[in-house]
Every structure is written in structure tokens, then in C-alpha cells.
């Protein structure tokens, strides 16, 4: 179990347990349950509703999106707290991992509320295409976020696989400012093995694992582009960010 690609018989039970615990944590904190998602009418915004989002002032749309992201991040924090070993890390490292990884997990979780056929995502009560976010003035970033969701959806991950991948992303041992890199590395390695084990059990083959590892750099790029866009927005609207953005959002992305 310490780095071997094919776990020994004795460690299989351990990996099954980790997969089970992680999956339960994911389902307890995933914001929208399967049953709720099934009940959603997958209703798209009507044209006049789209236009009303598009005609919002830029700062109003930014504020709305900051609120929605913050809500989603609060669930990710709860997920992190239930990851095996996370709360045993020092507080500095918990904060470092969440600051760097919480938005990445929001993007991962987005594939659960994404409709690939219509290229829409659940937002503010209905399914929204990229055009709904026009007022943000970040068309390129929005297009990349939608492309990412579509590409992750195409892997048809189960909730177990999604849970372990989310945990793997959060437990990235290469984040800057970690105090106990080794401990995070151990947790991430164990999560990687559990993910590999579950993928094998689900007869998915190694191709999926490789594709998921490639997604890690795509996630980092999306998040750094989000930070760049926020900086550009804040340069123009410093008071809007200071007075109207959720405090947690500012803590995470405020620099």
C-alpha cells in the first residue's frame, strides 16, 4: 500500500474502506443529491431570462457568481473536513489545500449538474448556457469552464470515482506553503491507489486514470485564469469587491 501500483490483498480492504468513506463524505456534502437532480426539470432559461442576465451590470453579475461560487465552496469545505486524515493535518496545511483546491473541486463537481447535450449548467434555478454569463466580460474563461465540464462528463464517472478524484485534487501535495508536504503526499498517494482500485473494479481501464491526471493541469489553469479575471475586475471595481462580495470568497481569492 505504500506506492505499489497493484495493492496487496491485505490493502484491498483498506482501499475499499477509503473509497467507501470518501464516497459517503462526497454524497453528504454534494449540494445536490441524485434524487434532487432527477427531480430537476432540466429546464433551460427562456430567451428573455437570458437577456435579463445579459443586461445586468457587470458588477451585479460578478457579485451573483461570487455568491454562487461561495455557496458551492462551503460544501467543498465540509467535504474536505470529512476526508480521511484531512483534519489531522495542521491548520496551515488545511487552509493551504482549501485555498488552492476548493474552486478546483467546484469545477469537478460541476459535471454533476451539467447537461452535455445542451451545453448548459444548473445556475440560479435553471439550466444556463455560456451566453447567460456574458455580462461578466469573461467569455473565454466561461467557454473553457464549459469545455472542461463537457470533457469530464464524457468520462461518465460514478459518484465513487468522482468522490475519490475530488479528494485527490484537494490533497495535492505540490501546493506552495505546505508545512508537512510528506503527510499530504501520503494521503494523496493512498487516494490515488483507491481511485485506481475503484476504476479497476468498475472495469474502466487505465485510460480513464490517465485522462483524470491530465485534468489536474486543466483545473489549475481554470483557477489561475479566474484569479486573473478577478484581479482585472477588482482593478476597475475595488469598492464592489470590498463591500458586496462574500467574505469567504475574498479570503480565498483576495490575494
Amino acid at each position: 500500500s505504500d506506492g505499489d501500483a497493484s495493492p496487496t490483498a491485505s490493502s484491498v480492504a483498506e482501499l475499499d474502506h477509503l473509497a467507501h468513506v470518501t464516497s459517503r463524505s462526497h454524497l453528504e456534502t454534494c449540494q445536490y443529491l441524485r434524487e434532487e437532480l432527477q427531480q430537476m426539470s432540466w429546464q433551460n432559461f427562456l430567451q428573455d431570462e437570458v437577456e435579463s442576465y445579459q443586461s445586468k451590470p457587470r458588477e451585479g453579475m460578478w457579485q451573483l457568481c461570487a455568491v454562487k461560487i461561495t455557496e458551492a465552496i462551503q460544501y467543498v469545505v465540509e467535504f474536505a473536513k470529512r476526508i480521511d486524515g484531512f483534519m489531522d493535518l495542521c491548520q496551515n496545511d488545511q487552509i493551504v489545500l482549501l485555498k488552492a483546491g476548493s474552486l478546483e473541486v467546484v469545477f469537478v463537481r460541476m459535471c454533476r449538474v451539467f447537461d452535455s447535450q445542451n451545453n448548459t449548467v444548473y445556475f440560479d434555478g435553471k439550466f444556463a448556457g455560456p451566453d447567460v454569463f456574458k455580462a461578466l466580460g469573461c467569455d473565454d474563461l466561461i467557454a473553457s469552464v464549459f469545455d472542461f465540464a463537457k470533457s469530464l462528463c464524457s468520462l461518465h464517472l460514478t459518484e465513487d470515482e468522482l468522490a475519490l478524484f475530488s479528494s485527490f485534487v484537494l490533497l495535492s501535495a505540490d501546493r506552495t506553503w505546505l508545512q508537512d508536504k510528506l503527510q499530504v503526499e501520503k494521503l494523496q498517494q493512498k487516494t490515488h491507489l483507491a481511485l485506481q482500485h475503484v476504476l479497476q473494479k468498475n472495469q474502466r481501464g487505465d485510460g480513464v486514470l490517465h485522462k483524470l491526471r491530465c485534468k489536474v493541469s486543466a483545473l489549475r489553469s481554470l483557477c489561475s485564469r479566474h484569479t486573473e479575471k478577478l484581479s482585472a475586475f477588482r482593478a476597475v471595481y475595488p469598492d464592489v469587491v470590498r463591500t458586496h462580495f462574500p467574505p469567504l470568497y475574498k479570503e480565498l481569492f483576495g490575494g
Partner: peptide, 20 residues
């Protein structure tokens, strides 16, 4: 700690998604 006050609070509180 002051810089990440809310994150600290969220990490320390035993909240559940229903409370969020």
C-alpha cells in the same frame, strides 16, 4: 489567522450542509 478567519471558523465548527 485573522486573514483566514471564516475558513478557520468553518474548519472548527461542526456544521453540516443543512446549516450552510
Amino acid at each position: 489567522k485573522e486573514k483566514h478567519k471564516i475558513l478557520h471558523q468553518l474548519l472548527q465548527n461542526s456544521t453540516s450542509p443543512v446549516d450552510l
